[in-house]
Design a protein around this nucleic acid. Structure first.
Lengths: 215, 215
DNA sequence: CCGTGACCATAACACTGCTATGGATAGATG
DNA sequence: CATCTATCCATAGCAGTGTTATGGTCACGG
């Protein structure tokens, strides 16, 4: 066997590509610029990834990994509803702090099946959190999936409308809060408990905002 | 004054651009191909629009106009909640019948302020429908905006996750129905009335599905 | 009946992603 | 240890992109 592949080049390419994408958006990520910035040749992208589309896929996976890592930083407490709200706040903050990356992950191109699976790992914490709410008896009996996907879709809806410039930032934030209240009462939580958890979760969301940069 | 501008060329460009975008997606819309397909030269795009970004903006506006026209086809009945549900179903069907156009409108590029205004015309029917529900006493007192933007964001959330391939089509449809139920009870409608309106609205949504092509 | 100025066809430019080619190099093999 | 070989990647070129400079054409106002 001959000269083995240098993994350092691969990670350098991914990190530079993620940085360029995060800072200047999809169109700024150009084959020649990436190669120049890493100090490699354009061929490196082809030997390591196969082409620009596969490179962009790697950038998406990187973005999902960062988002998952960010979500993993919200800890469980004895108020699972507040935990879910804190998760949502962390998701919201991370997305709006890195709009170009979020766009690359969820709005550019169509993800294939394997990347949809990776993207879903981002959804797992939410699913678990909702499950904990159900176990604690805060919500009326239901399957976690049924509830969590409503939360995720609404969260993503406000985030992506905001990023697309279709809704004013203030309207998005207020709307998300209203929707949170709507879901909590619809899921069966009592209005008083919901309000208390919302306050607690929001405070934690604000507190965790400082670490929202994508590395 | 010399040779006056021919508006027929302009609309031919927009229609061809919208058709190409709708059929094959954003990357298929190429300056040279568009010019060839219309039988004009590439310069026509520059005299009429100024460049590709402005042309894409025109395509977005065209997409918004088509979506608005589609939504305008759902009539008022004496069940305003069913009307809103039918509106949502029409939105959902139109978007999924023309995913490339919907992507161009809401997911590609960032819209500027003036196009955000045009895009919001798509939101007006929903706002009006929710207002009618409030007037009819079906929902607890609130501002139409506060309720309508929750509905819009959730609708867009499921649609865009579906188009992005991040959620299984079945999960999106089921999730949207669950979310509709959640919102109706959270907004103050009685479960029985909500269920009846949901059934009526869904039937009308299915019936209106045949005309979901984008022209 | 011109002119004149908006419209647009032609051609070139810088740039994109991509591929063919060949040189360098690190590991396996005798 | 020497050689061989297959992998990695730097160079150069190709087709295609959006954009712009140039000049011809033709409908209108004088």
């Amino acid at each position: 066997m001959p000269k083995v592949a240098d993994p350092a080049v691969r990670v350098a390419l991914i990190e530079a590509a993620a940085r360029i994408t995060a800072e200047e958006g999809r169109d700024a990520l150009t084959l020649r610029r990436l190669a120049a910035e890493v100090g490699a040749s354009t061929m490196a992208v082809y030997t390591h990834f196969g082409g620009m589309t596969e490179l962009r896929r790697a950038v998406r996976r990187e973005g999902f990994a960062r988002l998952a890592a960010h979500l993993a930083r919200v800890d469980d407490t004895d108020d699972p509803v507040a935990d879910v709200i804190a998760l949502g706040a962390a998701y919201y903050r991370m997305a709006l702090a890195n709009p170009h990356l979020y766009r690359a992950m969820f709005m550019d191109g169509k993800v294939d099946d394997e990347d949809a699976h990776v993207g879903l790992e981002t959804y797992q914490p939410l699913l678990r959190g909702v499950g904990r709410c159900l176990d604690a008896g805060r919500f009326s009996p239901a399957t976690p999936h049924e509830l969590a996907r409503q939360v995720w879709a609404t969260l993503h809806g406000f985030v992506s409308l905001h990023i697309a410039g279709m809704i004013a930032p203030r309207d998005a934030a207020e709307g998300l809060e209203s929707a949170t209240r709507s879901f909590l009462v619809a899921f069966g939580d009592t209005p008083e408990a919901a309000e208390a958890s919302l306050r607690r979760g929001r405070e934690r969301g604000l507190a965790s905002g400082e670490g929202a940069s994508a590395r």
